[in-house]
Amino acid sequence: MGVETKLGNLGFVTTTLEKVVNWGRVRAMWPVLFGLACCAIEMMAAQSADYDMSRFGMELMRASPRQSDLMIVAGRLTRKMSPVLRRIYDQMPEPKYVIALGDCSSCGGIFNNYAVVPGVDEIVPVDVYIAGCPPRPEALIHGILTLYDKVENQKVKDWA
């Protein structure tokens, strides 16, 4: 509305391509539903009425990796599960981002043993790490906003 009154009814705005594309990416980030363990329960809590993640344009958890561009790895990743994780990651279309939610997926957490992968960054590249065991829903929302900052500042030359 503001544009119209200033410029008349011209119907266009000028901006940079970079900004528009990044704006679009941030406003509709669809996470793939990938709950592994305890942290997934907090991820569900973040989706629910009290915390309401949909305020940030991500009420749509997609069950299919092919429809999503953000993977929230919520919980501990075991050796048996790691090929599955990579496979799901490979199926996601570019551009894709990964959030490691919780201590376990960031670094292995309290499980320093044969079964748990010490950090999902050994399997998939991670953009944002969220600490906590489990992180509070607020922490998850903070992590997502941090990711938004990162995406908004992407440069054309970095686009894949």
């Binding site: 309290i110 499980f111 079964a115 748990v116």
Partner: peptide, 29 residues
């Protein structure tokens, strides 16, 4: 087995009271 975390083995390496934190993460509800 996709969530086998080795909790039993890890608990064997911790003192009784310290092993308690592992039990929280077992059935997380």
């Amino acid at each position: 087995g996709f969530l086998h975390t080795g909790i039993e083995k890890s608990m064997e390496t911790k003192a009784y009271e310290k092993a308690l934190v592992m039990t929280d993460r077992m059935d997380y509800l």
